[in-house]
């Protein structure tokens, strides 16, 4: 029940013990090459290949022509051919989908992080039934299949003229981000000593100033986790835009891809290029922010 995410553990990747606790010259025998050791590293490398091969194949095939793939299904992209990217980007409107996705993802993650920061601070700094109930309500969103409420949501957005509108999608994703973001941020705020608030108050700071000047800078690691970690499901989501976006000019990447798969069925090179384009931002994000992604993934452990 204790929060796993804390300023100290979030910095160390899970699975690795903080260096300080590792005993310096433990009488650990030098690992000998044993049959078990060989078997275990074979297994690790083999599964790494199984895990990554399809993604490498996607990249490799996006650099080949369709004819080449038909002739040599297992060939390599030598020399690489980039025309399929040009085709996916311009002819198949991936430029539109891509920028729509970027806009929706960035705006909705900022929205949900901002409102969740405020709410999480209040949850951590109040003690009453009312706030505990509200926090419980938000947290229930982590487990409930909220996507089943799509029909009323559709009618509501339709009445407001927000179908096929990126603003509507941003509001929906903003709301969907609240449960996870409040959960992570509130457990962070709770670890900050109340003396901070008292000291700030003695200096004449109001509640908002205390929040803004004193607490926000201290929870920066948690904010990074929330932003990076919410980016992934919003960028990847397919269900909401499939139903809420009817106009092709407002498609985000995942819906764009389904349409594109219908139209370019036999044009394998362009299909692979499209899939790669939708994947690249995530891989870049993951490699740049492995720490945040990993701590986001393991944050749910204490639930």
């Amino acid at each position: 029940m204790t929060a796993t995410i804390s300023p100290s553990t979030a910095d160390a990747a899970p699975g690795e013990r903080p260096p300080a606790r590792r005993r310096p010259a433990a009488p650990r025998r030098r690992q000998k090459v044993t049959a078990g050791g060989v078997a275990s590293s074979t297994f690790l490398w083999l599964y790494a290949a199984i895990s990554i091969a399809p993604l490498l194949l996607m990249l490799s095939n996006s650099l080949r022509t369709t004819q080449d793939m038909a002739k040599h299904p297992l060939g390599l992209p030598l020399p690489p051919n980039f025309t399929s990217y040009q085709k996916a980007w311009i002819t198949a409107s991936f430029d539109t989908y891509f920028f729509n996705s970027i806009f929706v993802t960035v705006a909705s993650v900022l929205l949900s992080t901002a409102v969740s920061l405020l709410a999480a601070y209040a949850f951590a700094r109040t003690k009453s039934k009312l706030f505990a109930t509200l926090e419980g309500l938000f947290l229930s969103g982590l487990m409930l299949p909220v996507y089943l409420a799509i029909l009323p949501l559709f009618f509501m957005l339709d009445a407001a003229g927000l179908i096929s509108n990126l603003g509507g999608l941003i509001l929906v994703y903003g709301a969907l981000g609240i449960p996870f973001s409040t959960f992570v941020l509130a457990s962070f705020f709770r670890q900050l000593p109340i003396e901070l608030d008292e000291a700030a108050r003695l200096d004449g700071a109001g509640p908002f100033m205390t929040f803004w000047r004193v607490h926000l800078p201290l929870v920066r690691p948690a904010i990074a986790t929330v932003i990076v970690f919410r980016f992934v499901p919003v960028w990847n989501d397919f269900f909401y835009p499939l139903i809420l976006i009817r106009d092709q000019s407002a498609y985000t990447l995942p819906v764009g891809i389904t349409r594109f798969f219908g139209e370019y069925q036999t044009d394998w090179a362009t299909l692979f290029a499209g899939l790669t384009l939708a994947t690249i931002p995530l891989v870049v994000l993951f490699l740049l922010a492995t720490k945040q992604i990993v701590s986001g993934l393991t944050a749910g452990m204490s639930k």
């Binding site: 969740s116 405020l118 509200l134 799509i150 903003g174 709301a175 609240i178």
Partner: peptide, 18 residues
């Protein structure tokens, strides 16, 4: 006041439709 923005968003787009 701090909770209100999140509560409105959550209420309108999640709780009410559900």
């Amino acid at each position: 006041v701090f909770v209100l923005p999140a509560l409105i968003l959550f209420g309108v787009f999640i709780a009410y439709p559900l």
